[in-house]
């Protein structure tokens, strides 16, 4: 039983050392990913979206930008068509993605 116990202790000790090394590696990976983020890898994308026409036109910019944020960070947009029958607007936009 004692021998078995010794084995487990050595194994545990090795595992502990390994997990320490893994922790250190994770830290290095985290630091690298932080640096990569800081390099601002950003892409631009042209998209279109159909948005409900709101009762108050002043609320449209927020409604449009909230919708565009599902696809990226809005950079430039405009309503290019209005479907009065369906009460919808067609928005053309360029969004950015990191």
């Amino acid at each position: 039983m004692g021998e078995k116990s010794d084995f487990f202790n050595k194994s545990d000790f090795c595992n502990c050392q390994l997990s320490t090394v893994n922790c250190q590696l994770s830290t290095i990976n985290y630091q690298l990913s932080t640096i990569n983020c800081q390099l601002l890898i950003m892409t631009t994308h042209f998209i279109t979206a159909e948005i409900d026409l709101t009762e108050a036109p002043v609320k449209l910019p927020q409604a449009i930008e909230s919708h565009l944020q599902k696809s990226g960070q809005p950079l430039r947009w405009a309503i290019t068509e209005v479907d009065q029958e369906k009460q919808k607007v067609l928005v053309e936009a360029v969004v950015t993605r990191d």
Partner: peptide
């Protein structure tokens, strides 16, 4: 598009 001109940048960074 039929109503407007748009564009994108390949190398934003």
């Amino acid at each position: 598009t039929s109503g407007a001109s748009w564009g994108t940048i390949g190398n934003t960074a």
